[in-house]
Design a protein around this nucleic acid. Sequence first.
DNA 1: ATTTATATGATTGAAATCGATCATATAAAG
DNA 2: CTTTATATGATCGATTTCAATCATATAAAT
Lengths: 255, 255
Amino acid sequence: MRVSKNVVEARRQLLADLLQNQRYLPLEQICIRLSISAATARRDLSELQRTGRIRRTPGGALSDFSDKFPSFAERLGRDSERKNGLARQVLPHLFSGSTVYIDGGTTPFALARLLPEAEIPGLKVVTNSLPVVELLSGSGVSLHIPGGDLVARQSLLIGERAVRALRDWKIDVSVLGAEGVTESGFWNSAPEVVALQKAAIANSKRSFVLVTAEKIGHRAGAQLATWSSGLELVTDATEKQLQSARIPLAKMEVG
Amino acid sequence: MRVSKNVVEARRQLLADLLQNQRYLPLEQICIRLSISAATARRDLSELQRTGRIRRTPGGALSDFSDKFPSFAERLGRDSERKNGLARQVLPHLFSGSTVYIDGGTTPFALARLLPEAEIPGLKVVTNSLPVVELLSGSGVSLHIPGGDLVARQSLLIGERAVRALRDWKIDVSVLGAEGVTESGFWNSAPEVVALQKAAIANSKRSFVLVTAEKIGHRAGAQLATWSSGLELVTDATEKQLQSARIPLAKMEVG
DNA sequence: ATTTATATGATTGAAATCGATCATATAAAG
DNA sequence: CTTTATATGATCGATTTCAATCATATAAAT
């Protein structure tokens, strides 16, 4: 039966919002959540697609832009294969029953993608990265979230509480990302992220920093660690590149 | 014709990368770009979905870190409109600048769905429910996750660490779910969930328990609270239903 | 109050998609 | 080299999805 115009528009807006949060929804779910028939759902979707707010797929729909972790998804695609290569080098260091901390950022995320297949028995994953949580939830891996604050459109739980919570953990291997590496050490731009990384390093037996070649020689606002702090660099940069940036070659794995 | 194992794996990885970049690809596009038949494309997609790297849709596929929380999504649909009704009753109690704790379960989740529209300035949401986190991340609401352990295919962070972390918070309003309500109080089946709820109640000025009518009179394994503990029942049950279950009518909101 | 317009749900035939099965070529194993 | 295993593409019902049509209840217009 006919409903008022503003009800229709409100429902369509709700559907658009829903899709932005959920990325993708099957038609059936849309019907259930909005308590409407398939016919009306189709009509709403057609209208939303006509105005360019969503994209239709057979049997469902998805929001085209600005998903939950927009910048993350964007960066993720780039050099995906190379990042996987770095992550694969860390895999042998994750032994059965050990605890691994997975940092935010796209390169550590690449490691998380390898874990379901790797099937390491009794592996514990500690992470504040929501993409990692989403990826691994329901995959059989034991997941532990120290907790913290999710600000703005970030994809990482940070803040003072996060740092304190992380101190409670005994970690075997930390897997970190960095935005830059110079002869003086590792760099990242966000101080809150660095604070969290430092807490992870302090509680870890070993810490790997995964860095793709183009970041060699760059520095950023906040220093994560110096070379004397025992971090282990994993990179696909050539020895030549490393030497020209005066990166010490000790304790390092090059792929 | 058969191709070598590494060719297969490389192609699947390429497909996963492709999907990460494109978000969504129709099956036909996958066939064209990888020069494979629909049958092989389907097989590749099935394999990638099995390892949790992508999500299948009818007629295509999309990259989706979140396998989402299937059992949760399933329960969500049931009585969706009635749960929304309960949630709407809580909304007026969330004032500007206040802190609200949103419990796991589908009924408290219904409240989370109302928050982006409600646009309560300065509202802080504290939750260990991953569906709530996913729903609200990037919606402008300030999100805080106490943290904890994610076990099996649960969608809630629980455990001793979670309880301790929650004790750090000062909460204005807690919104909880319950599996049963009797004359002796509120009930839930999982003791770890109850432990978390008790911590939330202890740190909250007010606590609402959202319960749909069919749960009236039922009890479960673990008692959450008695009627003397000051919890406020929000339900769509009739007075008659409540009286026949000997539920005290004080301090309660009926919709 | 009366008339007009339209939002909705149900139905239906057409089209698309899916999973299963099969033959075949070729990689991998012996 | 011979044998085995398997990755592939084609085919074919079964199922699902779609767009169009229609009756109806109700919002909006007069």
